[in-house]
Simulated assay, not measured.
Amino acid sequence: MVRCCTASSLEDSPCVDGSPALPIQFRHRALWGSLTAVLLLVIIVLSVTGRLGFRWPGPQVIRITALDSTGSLVNQSATVEQRDSTVTYSVTSRGTNRTSTMLFDIRHGVICYKPDSQRTCFLRKMDSSDYENLQALLGDPTQKVSQFWFLGNETQRFTEFLEVLGGKPVDISSLPGSLQSLCLQSSTYWARKAAGPAKQRLIYFCIDICFPNNVCVSVCFYYLPE
């Protein structure tokens, strides 16, 4: 036997077979509850798939101009990529057109040095001072600061020695994508900070880099004996 229930008012009305009908308020609350749940599910799905229109800011190129110890101008550029959490420095050697590259991969805590005119990369783990030096570049991405300038008497200068760990080169495929692109078809080795080379060990090369917090670092490499 088919039941037929009606409700002519806000009060409960019995069905023709004697069973009570659902209140209209209850049916409305159930309907709105279902719609709310579906809406929340749609919002979550759209958030996960990135369809809410959020877009990371594009790469920002920042110029850094400083005076070196001799009073000569040092021009460098830093490319900040918020999406990948990377900062890439391009450092042109004075008197030449050769450019060395330093890539700070903040997400993975690794710095990659690629010296000019060489098919070699050197890797080092980032420490607290590296993160501090990058803070001015990784601040509010909405701030469009494109130029940093500071005078020689305002600048703190340091020399940092890195000893290159010889042996078998690093497997490029094990590195993050940004480092793979930079070190493609290059021999790659790990390096670590050291107090300085022994007298019999020669400095291999140096890269001078300046940060917006008035800190300049001369990073010098030398090889450990095999």
Rank of each mutant, 00 (worst) to 15 (best):
G18I: 09
Q76H: 10
S69R: 13
P197K: 15
S90N: 02
S100M: 02
A198P: 07
V215N: 08
Q76M: 06
I62R: 06
K199I: 12
V215H: 12
I24T: 06
N133H: 07
Y131T: 14
I209Q: 03
Q82K: 09
A78V: 04
S187D: 07
C121E: 13
P225I: 15
W56K: 15
E81R: 14
E11D: 11
R63V: 09
K125G: 06
D140V: 12
L151A: 05
T101G: 08
Y223W: 13
K144Y: 02
F211G: 01
S19Q: 00
P169G: 11
V217W: 13
A198V: 01
L123C: 02
F122H: 01
T92K: 15
A194M: 10
Y131N: 14
E11M: 00
L224S: 11
L224C: 14
L137K: 00
P141C: 14
L162D: 00
R63N: 15
T6A: 07
F148L: 01
L52Q: 07
L184P: 11
F148Q: 06
V42T: 14
E226W: 06
L138S: 14
G50S: 05
S174K: 05
V38F: 13
L103W: 00
Q76C: 08
C183Q: 09
L179D: 10
D12K: 10
R157Y: 00
E163T: 13
L31C: 07
G177T: 06
V48R: 01
V110D: 10
A37K: 15
L179R: 03
G139V: 04
D84C: 00
P212F: 13
I44H: 04
K193Y: 14
V215A: 06
C216N: 00
L224H: 13
K114G: 03
Y113K: 12
R3Y: 03
T49L: 08
C220T: 00
C5I: 12
L123D: 03
S9Y: 03
G50L: 06
K125V: 05
D17N: 05
L40S: 04
V219Q: 11
S173N: 03
A191G: 14
Q118P: 08
C15N: 12
M1F: 11
F148I: 07
V80F: 05
Y222T: 05
R29H: 10
T92C: 10
L179C: 11
K144I: 03
A30E: 07
L134G: 15
A7G: 12
S77Q: 15
S8K: 02
S9K: 01
R119G: 01
P59L: 09
Q156Y: 13
M102C: 07
D130V: 08
P59I: 02
P14K: 13
D84K: 02
V170K: 04
I111A: 03
F122Q: 09
P59S: 00
T120N: 06
S9F: 01
G152A: 10
S187H: 01
R107W: 03
G177R: 11
T6L: 03
S129V: 04
A198T: 05
F161T: 03
Y89Q: 04
N213Y: 12
Q200T: 08
E160K: 04
L202V: 09
R192S: 15
T188M: 13
S69I: 14
D140C: 07
P23F: 11
L10P: 11
L39K: 14
R55C: 08
C210G: 04
I64Q: 09
R51D: 13
